[in-house]
Design a protein around this nucleic acid. Structure first.
Lengths: 238, 238
DNA sequence: AAGTGGTCTAGACCACTTT
DNA sequence: AAGTGGTCTAGACCACTTC
């Protein structure tokens, strides 16, 4: 027997579909709870419950008296959502972003598997350095499926003001909603040592990320190498 | 002007206080929603909302048809809540626990500050190794305020069946509810190299944890050194 | 004043577990 | 059958924002 899901979860699905289709763009307001309630022929409380779950997943933001808005990657708040680096001393600051490379390549077996592609499909490989107060701290190696980001070049990346995820969202309509990270300690190889300006063999934090958009579809693989002498990766265990 | 918090949050506070006082022990059932509602002179829906928030913080577990139960550290589920190590290949397994040391010491300034103690107050220092399939993988150095765990010895630790947090909860009534971790990459020093059986200088994951009980009172500081060649620290970014 | 999300209630009914 | 938590509704009122 199939167990039908509760009404508020079905409504949640309908609203999420509309978000995915782009019925309301990032930053825009959703219809009010009463409007959605009459649209779906349910009570306001049921819509409310649906939206609460969607808000808990950070897809929308609720503001009392104003409305419910589609989340964006622009806001300051979103910075520490996907970059968990905090300084050992002093207050958090924003990194400077230096893009080194954006090349079109063929996916290796492992990458293809992670991105749900076929081996040999085209991917974009982006490499960049994040620096804090002028000190190189993170070396990122990013892989994106090329078909979703046609025409993305190094020049685009260099010209854009804001985070890379904001660019991918506003220019290509792909929203990063969730990610899984696997963290390990590794020794700096010659390339990482050169790029990050540390001795060969320096212990570095390796952060492998798989990022997902709607429907948990994977759309980004990245490895970050972090220097953790003055910064650490902060995590909360609930 | 003081803004009074909503009713359900006040009820949440009252229930949490009762949990802290031990009115219901770990594993026991709370009174039903209707009983609590009449006790606090509010509607069932308000109690419900309060309990939902408490459940979201993992202090209690709700089970349809059965009741609401005080959470414990015994269940398998709790294992991966506070130990985020997963194997690169194969399915998760349980580590074997080997305690090396449990000594009474005076707190250094840094530890004292983190535990809200005075410098020089007594602390317990526990050291142990976690092994997976017989392979030493984690070297933990744990500090607890001695006054909360009077009489805790190496023999107790060796004799107890179950996780250390389960012991602290059932034998000393101190529940670990939440923790913050700071993760860095470090080189194995001579001691860590010897204990974990790796070459000097091997990159290790350093995981510094501060664990809290009720009222966000810190009650444990630990540093773990993880070998991450076959395991990685897994994290979800929402 | 009007519109939004946030709180609170009361009551009905459903789904699951236990007796 | 009785008791628990889970869903859904309808309506009232509050808090905040905008006009």
């Amino acid at each position: 027997m199939l167990k039908s899901s509760p009404l508020y979860r079905q409504v949640k699905g309908l609203i999420t579909q509309s978000l995915e289709k782009g019925e309301w763009k990032p930053g825009e307001a959703l219809p009010s709870e009463f409007e959605l309630a009459s649209r779906f022929k349910v009570s306001q409380g049921t819509v409310r419950r649906a939206i609460e779950e969607i808000a808990a997943e950070n897809l929308v933001i609720r503001q009392q008296g104003k409305g419910t808005f589609v989340a964006t990657h622009d806001v300051a708040h979103a910075q520490f959502r996907f970059l968990r680096l905090v300084p050992e001393e002093g207050s958090p600051r924003y990194p400077e972003n230096r893009f080194l490379e954006c090349k079109r390549l063929r996916a290796t077996g492992k990458i293809a598997r992670q991105l749900n592609l076929r081996s040999g499909d085209a991917v974009l490989r982006i490499r960049r350095i994040l620096s804090f107060d002028g000190v190189p701290t993170v070396f990122d190696d990013i892989c994106l499926p090329a078909n979703l980001f046609k025409g993305l070049t190094l020049e685009h990346l260099l010209a854009y003001q804001g985070t890379m995820y904001a660019l991918l969202e506003t220019e290509y309509g792909v929203s990063m909603l969730r990610a899984e990270e696997k963290i390990r300690a590794v020794a700096a190889d010659s390339e990482a040592a050169a790029v990050l300006n540390v001795p060969l063999g320096t212990p570095l934090l390796s952060v492998e990320r798989l990022a997902m958009t709607f429907g948990d579809q994977p759309v980004e693989v990245r490895q970050g190498l972090y220097i953790t002498t003055h910064f650490s990766y902060k995590n909360e265990l609930g």
